[in-house]
Computed example of a mutant assay.
Amino acid sequence: MDGQTNGGRNHAHDPETIAFIRQMLGELRVMAEQQRCFMLCYLIEMAYVEAGDIQLGVKPSDIIRKKTDQSGRMTG
C-alpha cells in the first residue's frame, strides 16, 4: 500500500498491477451492465475510480484533508 502501513511494513503499489486491475474492472463493468446488474455496475465503477486514484497517487486521507477546515470539521 503506497505510503500506508500494513502489518508494520510500508508497501508501494506496482503500477502495472494497478493498471491491470483497473482494466479488468472496466471489462467487468461492461459485462455487469449487459446483464442489467446496476448495483454491481455501480460498485465496480467505484472500484475502477479507486484504482484510478491509486494510479494518480490520490490517497483517501488526502481527500478527507482537503474537505476539512481549520477547526477540524468536515466542510460541505
Rank of each mutant, 00 (worst) to 15 (best):
M24C: 11
G7H: 12
T75R: 14
I63P: 00
A47P: 00
R29Y: 02
I63G: 01
A19E: 11
P15V: 08
E27A: 09
K59G: 04
E50Y: 01
N10D: 09
K59Q: 14
D53P: 00
G8W: 04
M39L: 15
R9E: 06
G8H: 06
I64T: 09
D69N: 15
E45V: 00
I54R: 15
M1F: 07
D53L: 14
D62T: 09
T68K: 12
D2G: 03
F38N: 13
S61C: 07
Q55N: 02
D14W: 02
L56Y: 10
G72A: 03
L25F: 02
T17I: 14
R9K: 07
E16M: 13
R9Q: 06
Y48C: 08
G8P: 11
R36T: 07
I64W: 09
R22E: 03
P60N: 08
K67V: 03
C41D: 06
A51E: 09
Y42H: 13
E27M: 09
V58D: 03
Y42K: 05
S71F: 07
M24Q: 14
V49A: 13
R29K: 13
M24T: 13
V30H: 02
C41H: 05
I54H: 11
A19D: 08
V30T: 07
T17D: 11
G8A: 05
M46V: 10
T68S: 08
Q4M: 10
